[in-house]
Design a protein around this nucleic acid. Structure first.
Lengths: 151, 151
DNA sequence: GGCCAGTCCTTAGTATACCTAACCACTGAG
DNA sequence: CTCAGTGGTTAGGTATACTAAGGACTGGCC
């Protein structure tokens, strides 16, 4: 199975490094995912936030902004959209009232699950058509790249 | 869902499908890449366009919009930014004057190469620290996912 | 007690990038 | 020459991000 290695062994080709491929693939996928989004629904960031909250429980705004790699002010806006749509709540932290704990409402949790499932239908279908080895490669790449993104 | 390969090392929960992991990794990487962007420079889309033009030669606006999976109107705006910055030209197609051929200027081509190299420094550094197998997995995943995104 | 630096969050203003809808400009068929 | 279809553009709106500026609270120090 050296067929793929011969294509891109990192840095052999002039400018087409592995990083370039990763970057363009990410851009393409991101736009593709966005185009799947039905109108009138939450954006990708807002939905991600909802999912994190659902999985990890209440988080402070700063924690969320670090999770998403965005500035706190940006996250505050995203949370605004969620709260004004009734999908999340802000609760002052009783121990440190500078902090605000953000949590999902029941509707928010439900929406997070439902929307993710719906949006992943197409992608999962495509992925399941791949060979187990290919799926494994993708799973591995995701884990690796997630780590890199968080570093 | 239960028929997934048992070596799935990612989430243990049933809802954490491979598609979910791909999606969240893509979102994370996208935001990470964006945060690397120095201010006053071109956005990701504009830069991608410049790179495609450099590699493939002149393209019509509709072709570009299909490449990027965006609406023609959106691409028109992105091209506007490029042309007003002097990095691309619009040329009416002599055979069909409804069409507009978009091409890079020399400055645009140069910028595309330079900026990509600069932006990929960090990512390539991270990637080269990985084992060859991991790099291979990522290269394979990129190829697979690029195909999926384009389908 | 009261002051003050630092932390956490918010609001305001700006920019990128995407969308739909509406609208020209041109082509090719009749 | 009219008209339907194609290719592009502009207008208006949304989502997301940033920086800058400020309010609210905490904890240490006088």
């Amino acid at each position: 199975m050296e067929t793929e290695t011969s294509r891109e062994p990192l840095g052999t080709t002039d400018e087409a490094s592995l990083g370039s491929h990763v970057r363009s693939a990410v851009g393409l996928l991101y736009r593709r995912f966005r185009s799947e989004r039905p109108e009138g629904t939450l954006g990708d960031t807002a939905l991600d936030v909802l999912t994190w909250l659902h999985k990890q429980g209440p988080r402070t705004l700063t924690q969320l902004s670090e999770d998403a790699h965005v500035a706190p002010a940006s996250m505050s806006q995203s949370v605004n959209r969620l709260t004004s749509a009734g999908y999340a709540n802000r609760t002052p932290d009783p121990n440190d009232r500078r902090k605000v704990l953000i949590s999902t409402t029941p509707e928010g949790a439900e929406l997070a699950i439902a929307t993710r499932a719906q949006r992943n239908t197409w992608l999962d279908g495509q992925l399941q058509a791949l060979s187990p080895e290919d799926q494994h490669a993708i799973a591995r790449a995701c884990a690796l790249l997630t780590t890199i993104a968080g570093s």
